[in-house]
Nucleic acid binder design. Structure first.
Length: 837
RNA sequence: GCGCGGGUGGUGGAAUGGCAGACACGAGGGACUUAAAAUCCCUUCCUUGAAUAGGGGGUGAGGGUUCGACUCCCUCCCCGCGCACCA
C-alpha cells in the first residue's frame, strides 16, 4: 500500500520545469511530421488574468497537447498586445510610465500563464510595444502607403471626449465608445485611414471559403460589410448643369420618385440656397441636425424631419420636376448622401411624404390585389407589376430591374452599381502609447513617408503625462521637429499613433521569426506555417480584430509577400465565464482570480473545472464550489494509481490475454476502450470537453470498484496477473486521455505507472473496435411507447428469437392481457415497442 | 423590426428520433473520528404510495408529424448577442 499524498504544487512545479527543460513546446524544425499552428488571441497586459481569460488559454492548451500526442509538429506561440489606453491612463493617474507599467504587468501575467501549465514556445514571444516589433508595424503602414491604401483626409470622425481620441466605426457601439461607454461626438479632423473599403468585395467573398468559422461570426462580418446591389442614377439640378447622383437598390421604382432628400452634411447645400429665402431655414436645420449626437439622430423614436430647399431636380426618365429637400434621415456616409425618395415603396419616404404633404405615386402594383394609392397607410415594399412606368408597364418588377438599368446605361443617365456599408478604417489615435505613424509633414513636399531605413520612428520615453487630454507627443519638440526626408528642409512629425488593432492585425506572422531585425516576417516560414490551423479567442473580436487581420493578410498577399489569402483556417470562439449573472469585470467586483484556486487546489483543478463547467462555446456560470468537485476527482484518480505503485514495479507488463478474462475484467477492458473512443470523438468532433471528462469520471468510478482484492492479494497466478495488467492498461489509458486536460498530474502518474516521461511523447491511444461491442444488451420493452419491462439478450439476437423472449416476459404478458398486437417495432440493441389495442 | 444562439431538477449541465436528468455541485442521512477537516457509503425531478412494488405527470406555452418527440414541423412567449432610418 502506498499513501503518497497528491502534492499538486510540488508536482506542478516539477513538470513545468521538465517541459521547459526538454522543450516540449519548441518546434522541432527538422522532422517530417505534419504541421499544426495553434494560436490563442494574444492578451492585453492588464495586470492579472481572471478565470474567464483562463478559459481561452486552457482550451488552446488542450488542443496543443492533444495534437502533439496525435503526432503533429505543433506551433503554439504567445505574445502581448501591449500598446493601449489603460496603461496611458494609469500613467496620468498614478504617474508610472506606460512602458514600465506594461513590462511589469507582462511579467506578472507570464508567471500566471506558466503557473497554469499552458504550453508555449516562449522563445517566440512578441511584445507589440517594443521597438523591435512596432518598427514592423510602421513598415506595414509604409507598404499600405506605397499602394495608396493608407491616406489622410479631413473628415467627420468619431471623437471620444473621455479617451481624448478618435475611434474607428468598429469601435463605436450604439453611439458609445466601446471602451468607456462615453457618448461619441462627431468632429472634423485630418486623419489617417486604411482603404479597407477597397477590399469589401473580397472580404465578403472569401467568407465563403471559411468553412470552419462559426456562422455567427461570418454573418456579423457580412452584415458589417453590408453589400447592396442597385444602380446609380443622375438627376440634374434644375437651372444648372450640376448633377446630383443617387444610389438606389430599387431602380424599378424610378418612375415613383416624388422628391429627393439630401443629407444635412451634403456639401452642395450651401450653394443651393445661397442668397435665397430658403438659405436661413435650410442652413439652420442642417446645422441643428449636425449638432445632434449619434444616439439622438438614429434612435428608434427619432422623428423624420426636413426642410425644402426651394430647388428642384429633374427625373431623367420622365423629365418630371422633383422637389429637393434636406432631411435628417439621409446619411452622408452612405451612397452619395442624396436619396431619390419613393414614398409609395419605401416606408421612410412614405412617413416623410405624409408629414410634409408630398405626393405619393404608386409604380409597383401587388400582383394579387388592386392597390389604390389613396388608401395606402404604409409603403408597399413587396414585389409586383410595374405601373405608371412608361415602357416598363406590365412587367414584373424583378424582371424590370435589369431592363431599367440597361435603359439608364443606354441613355447615359445612370448605371448598375454596388454599394457597401463598410467605411475605411480610421487608424489615427491622438494618444501616446501606440506605434507612431511614420509620416513627416513638410511645407513643400506634403505628407512624406519616413524612409524604411529610418524605422523605427521611436516613441520618446521621456514625456510628461498630464490630464489635459492632449497627447504628450505634441509637446516633445525633439520628436516633432525633424527634417523632410525629401528636401531636407524643416518639417514636423505626425504626432498621432496607430490604432492598436494595427499591431494585432499581423502578429501571428511575426511569431515565425520574432527576432529577425531585417524584415517584418520571413515569407518562407510564414508560407510554411500559415494559415493558422486553429485560432481560439473571444466573440468580441468577431468584427474588429478578425476583419482587420483578414484585410491586412489580403494586402500582404497582393504585395506578393505571402501565398495565402486568409489568415485563420479554423476559428473557435469560446463563451464567457459569468459570475453572479454578469461578465467578470473589475468594476463589477465579480472577478475570480485563479491564483488562490491554484494555491489551494492546484492548476490541474482549475483547468479541469474550467473545461468541465460547460461546452467551451457556451457561456457558463462560475461556481467556487464546483472547483472542489474537480479537485476531489483528481484526488481519487491519484489514489487509484498510487495505491499500486509498488505493484507496477513488481509485476511484469505482459500482453493482455483475453481468454483469461472474467466477466468483470472483460467489462473493464471493454469500458476502457469505449471511453477512449468517447474522449477522442468529443475532442475531435465537437470540442465537448465537459462530456469527455464526465466519461472518464464514470470509468474511474467503475475502476475503483474493480476487483478490490487486487490490492491485498499476492498476484502470482496467471489470471490475477492478467487482471492486474488489464487494470494497468485501463489506468494508462486514463492517464493518456486526460493528459491534455490535466497535464501535470498525468505526467506524474505516468511515471508512477512505471513509464519514462513524458506522457506527451507517447501516441494518443487507439481503441479496439472489436471489444467495444457488447455481447449482452439490455433492451427496453415498451407497450404503446411506454416502458413496461426490460430484457437482457445477446446483442446479435435475431428478431424472431427476440420477440419470443419478449412474449415470455411476465409483466408484458400481464399488460397485453388478451389485447391484440397491431404492430411490433424493433430497434436493434435498443428497444422493442408493441402497439396493442 | 431583421438575423443568430438559448430556455431541461435547488445549481452547472447530459441525452439531436428510442429508458429524460449521465457527470458534477448543493442538500439530507449514515460510517470513520474525542472532535473537526478529509474520505467512504446511501438518498435526492414532481406527485401518489409503507415501499429503493407499482401508477400518473414532467424538458418555456399551444398545436402537428410519428409506433415513439427535449430532439423534426408550425404558431407564440421569455432571455442573451449582433445588426438596425444603409435609400
Amino acid at each position: 500500500m502506498n499513501n503518497r499524498k497528491y502534492n499538486f504544487s510540488e508536482i506542478e512545479k516539477k513538470w513545468q520545469d521538465f517541459w521547459e527543460g526538454c522543450g516540449l513546446f519548441r518546434v522541432d524544425e527538422d522532422c517530417n511530421k505534419d504541421k499544426f499552428y495553434c494560436l490563442v488571441m494574444f492578451p492585453y497586459p492588464s495586470g492579472t488574468l481572471h478565470v474567464g481569460h483562463g478559459r481561452n488559454y486552457i482550451i488552446g492548451d488542450v488542443v496543443t497537447r492533444y495534437k502533439i500526442m496525435k503526432g503533429y509538429r505543433v506551433l503554439s506561440p504567445i505574445g502581448w498586445d501591449a500598446f493601449g489606453l489603460p496603461a496611458e491612463n494609469a500613467a496620468i493617474e498614478i504617474g508610472i510610465h506606460p512602458a514600465i507599467h506594461t513590462r511589469s504587468n507582462i511579467k506578472k501575467m507570464k508567471k500566471q500563464l506558466e503557473g497554469w501549465g499552458v504550453g508555449y514556445d516562449w522563445d517566440r514571444e512578441v511584445t507589440s510595444c517594443e521597438p523591435d516589433y512596432y518598427k514592423w508595424t510602421q513598415w506595414i503602414f509604409l507598404k499600405l502607403f506605397e499602394r495608396n491604401l493608407a491616406y489622410n483626409k479631413k473628415a467627420a470622425v468619431n471623437w471620444c471626449p473621455s479617451c481624448a481620441t478618435v475611434l474607428a466605426n468598429e469601435q463605436v457601439v450604439d453611439g458609445l465608445c466601446e471602451r468607456c461607454d462615453t457618448n461619441v461626438k462627431q468632429r472634423d479632423l485630418e486623419q489617417w485611414f486604411f482603404r479597407i473599403s477597397d477590399y469589401a468585395q473580397r472580404l465578403l467573398d472569401d467568407l465563403g471559403t471559411l468553412d470552419e468559422w462559426p456562422e455567427r461570426v461570418k454573418t456579423m462580418q457580412a452584415n458589417w460589410i453590408g453589400r447592396s446591389e442597385g444602380a446609380r442614377i443622375n438627376f440634374t439640378l434644375e437651372g444648372s448643369d450640376e448633377v446630383l447622383s443617387c444610389f438606389t437598390t430599387r431602380p424599378d421604382t424610378i418612375f415613383g420618385v416624388t422628391f429627393m432628400s439630401l443629407a444635412p452634411e451634403h456639401p452642395i447645400i450651401g450653394r443651393l440656397v445661397k442668397g435665397t429665402d430658403y438659405e436661413e431655414p435650410v442652413l439652420e436645420f442642417a446645422d441643428r441636425i449636425k449638432e445632434q449626437s449619434f444616439v439622438e439622430r438614429t434612435s428608434e423614436g427619432a422623428v423624420k424631419e426636413g426642410v425644402f430647399t426651394g430647388r428642384h431636380v429633374i427625373n431623367p426618365v420622365n423629365g418630371e420636376r422633383v422637389p429637393l429637400w434636406v432631411s435628417n434621415y439621409a446619411l452622408m456616409e452612405y451612397g452619395t448622401g442624396a436619396v431619390m425618395a419613393v414614398p409609395a415603396h419605401d416606408q421612410r419616404d412614405f412617413e416623410f411624404a405624409k408629414k410634409y404633404n408630398l405626393s405619393i405615386k404608386l409604380v409597383i402594383q401587388p400582383a394579387d390585389k388592386d392597390k389604390i394609392q389613396e388608401e395606402m397607410n404604409e409603403a408597399y415594399v413587396g414585389d409586383g407589376i410595374q405601373v405608371n412606368s412608361a415602357q416598363f408597364d406590365g412587367m414584373p418588377n424583378r424582371e424590370a430591374i435589369p431592363r431599367i438599368i440597361e435603359f439608364f446605361e443606354d441613355k447615359g443617365i445612370g448605371e448598375g452599381s454596388v454599394n457597401y456599408r463598410i467605411r475605411d478604417w480610421l487608424i489615427s489615435r491622438q494618444r501616446y502609447w501606440g506605434a507612431p505613424i511614420p509620416i513627416i509633414y513638410c511645407d513643400s513636399c506634403g505628407s512624406v513617408p519616413v524612409p524604411e531605413k529610418d524605422l523605427p520612428v521611436l516613441l520618446p520615453e521621456n514625456v510628461e503625462f498630464k490630464p489635459h487630454g492632449r497627447s504628450p507627443l505634441v509637446d516633445v519638440e525633439e520628436f516633432v521637429n525633424t527634417t523632410c526626408p525629401k528636401c531636407k528642409g524643416n518639417a514636423k512629425r505626425e504626432t498621432d499613433t496607430m490604432d492598436t488593432f494595427v499591431d494585432s492585425s499581423w502578429y501571428y506572422m511575426r511569431y515565425l521569426s520574432p527576432k529577425d531585425d531585417t524584415q517584418a516576417f520571413d515569407s518562407k516560414e510564414v508560407n510554411k506555417w500559415l494559415p493558422v490551423d486553429q485560432y481560439i479567442g473571444g466573440i468580441e473580436h468577431a468584427i474588429l480584430h478578425l476583419l482587420y487581420s483578414r484585410f491586412i493578410t489580403k494586402v500582404l498577399f497582393d504585395l506578393g509577400l505571402i501565398n495565402f489569402n486568409e489568415p485563420f483556417k479554423n476559428l473557435f470562439t469560446q463563451g464567457m465565464i459569468i459570475k453572479n449573472g454578469a461578465k467578470m469585470s473589475k468594476s463589477k467586483g465579480n472577478v475570480v482570480n485563479p491564483d488562490s484556486i491554484i494555491e489551494k487546489y492546484g492548476a490541474d483543478t482549475q483547468r479541469l473545472y474550467t473545461l468541465f463547467i460547460a461546452p467551451p462555446q457556451r457561456d457558463a456560470e462560475w461556481s467556487d464550489r464546483g472547483v472542489i468537485g474537480a479537485f476531489r476527482f483528481l484526488k481519487r484518480l491519484w489514489q487509484n494509481v498510487v495505491v499500486f505503485e509498488e505493484r507496477f514495479k513488481e509485476i511484469p507488463k505482459t500482453k493482455i490475454k483475453r481468454d483469461l478474462f472474467s466477466s468483470e475484467t472483460k467489462d473493464l477492458y471493454r469500458y476502457t476502450n469505449l471511453t477512449i473512443k468517447k474522449v477522442t470523438e468529443d475532442i475531435e468532433v465537437s470540442w465537448h470537453f465537459n462530456t469527455a471528462i464526465a466519461s472518464v469520471m464514470e470509468l474511474i468510478n467503475k475502476l475503483a470498484n474493480f476487483n478490490v482484492n487486487l490490492k491485498e492479494k499476492d498476484l502470482k497466478d496467471e489470471k490475477s496477473i492478467n487482471d492486474f495488467n488489464v487494470l494497468r492498461f485501463s489506468l494508462e489509458a486514463i492517464v493518456k486521455i486526460l493528459a491534455p486536460f490535466v497535464p501535470h498530474i498525468c505526467e506524474e502518474l505516468w511515471e508512477i505507472l512505471g513509464n519514462t516521461p513524458s506522457v506527451f511523447s507517447v501516441p494518443w491511444p487507439s481503441y479496439d473496435k472489436d471489444v467495444i461491442v457488447a455481447e449482452q444488451v439490455e433492451m427496453v420493452i415498451q407497450i404503446n411507447g411506454k416502458v413496461r419491462s426490460r430484457v437482457v439478450v445477446p446483442s446479435d439476437i435475431g428478431e424472431e428469437d427476440l420477440k419470443l423472449r419478449v412474449m415470455e416476459d411476465k409483466r408484458i404478458k400481464e399488460s397485453i392481457n388478451g389485447k391484440k398486437i397491431i404492430k411490433t417495432i424493433v430497434v436493434p440493441k435498443k428497444l422493442v415497442n408493441l402497439v396493442i389495442k
